[in-house]
Simulated scan of single mutants.
Amino acid sequence: MIVARQAFGRMLLESDRAAEAIEPLEAYLAKRPDDTRTLALLSRAYMKLGKHLEAANGYTRTLASITNGRPRPEYYLERARALVAAGPKHIDQALAGLDEGLEALKYPVTLQLYAIELEIDHLRYDAALARVDQIASRSVRKETWLIQRGEILEKARRPEQARQAYQAALDAIAALPESRIRNRAVERLQAQATAGLERLLSSESDEPGATP
Score class of each variant (00 low, 15 high):
residue 83 L to G: 03
residue 84 V to I: 15
residue 84 V to Q: 14
residue 85 A to H: 05
residue 86 A to G: 08
residue 87 G to H: 15
residue 88 P to N: 08
residue 88 P to G: 05
residue 89 K to Y: 07
residue 89 K to E: 14
residue 89 K to Q: 14
residue 94 A to R: 11
residue 95 L to A: 15
residue 96 A to H: 09
residue 97 G to S: 11
residue 99 D to Q: 13
residue 100 E to R: 13
residue 100 E to N: 10
residue 103 E to M: 05
residue 104 A to V: 04
residue 105 L to F: 08
residue 106 K to C: 01
residue 107 Y to D: 12
residue 108 P to F: 06
residue 111 L to D: 04
residue 112 Q to R: 14
residue 113 L to R: 11
residue 114 Y to D: 03
residue 115 A to D: 08
residue 115 A to H: 04
residue 115 A to Y: 05
residue 117 E to M: 10
residue 118 L to Q: 04
residue 119 E to T: 08
residue 119 E to H: 12
residue 119 E to S: 12
residue 119 E to Q: 11
residue 120 I to V: 13
residue 121 D to T: 05
residue 121 D to I: 00
residue 121 D to Q: 08
residue 122 H to R: 02
residue 123 L to T: 12
residue 123 L to N: 14
residue 124 R to M: 03
residue 124 R to N: 06
residue 125 Y to E: 08
residue 126 D to H: 07
residue 127 A to M: 01
residue 128 A to C: 07
residue 129 L to S: 01
residue 129 L to E: 00
residue 129 L to I: 04
residue 130 A to W: 00
residue 131 R to A: 10
residue 131 R to W: 00
residue 133 D to K: 08
residue 135 I to M: 14
residue 135 I to D: 04
residue 137 S to I: 00
residue 137 S to W: 00
residue 137 S to N: 08
residue 138 R to E: 11
residue 138 R to H: 11
residue 139 S to H: 07
residue 139 S to W: 07
residue 140 V to A: 10
residue 141 R to S: 11
residue 141 R to F: 08
residue 141 R to K: 09
residue 142 K to M: 07
residue 144 T to Q: 12
residue 146 L to K: 05
residue 149 R to F: 03
residue 150 G to C: 08
residue 153 L to R: 08
residue 154 E to S: 09
residue 157 R to N: 15
residue 157 R to A: 15
residue 158 R to T: 01
residue 161 Q to C: 08
residue 162 A to V: 03
residue 163 R to C: 06
residue 165 A to L: 05
residue 165 A to P: 04
residue 166 Y to A: 02
residue 167 Q to A: 11
residue 167 Q to Y: 06
residue 168 A to R: 13
residue 168 A to M: 07
residue 169 A to Q: 06
residue 170 L to Q: 14
residue 171 D to N: 07
residue 172 A to W: 09
residue 172 A to N: 14
residue 173 I to P: 01
residue 173 I to H: 03
residue 176 L to D: 12
residue 176 L to A: 10
residue 177 P to D: 11
residue 178 E to N: 13
residue 180 R to C: 05
residue 182 R to E: 10
residue 183 N to C: 00
residue 183 N to M: 02
residue 187 E to I: 04
residue 189 L to M: 10
residue 189 L to V: 01
residue 190 Q to S: 13
residue 191 A to L: 13
residue 191 A to K: 12
residue 191 A to Q: 14
residue 193 A to R: 04
residue 193 A to L: 04
residue 195 A to S: 07
residue 195 A to I: 02
residue 196 G to E: 02
residue 197 L to H: 05
residue 197 L to Y: 01
residue 197 L to V: 09
residue 198 E to Q: 15
residue 199 R to F: 03
residue 199 R to N: 13
residue 199 R to A: 10
residue 201 L to P: 01
residue 201 L to W: 01
residue 203 S to F: 07
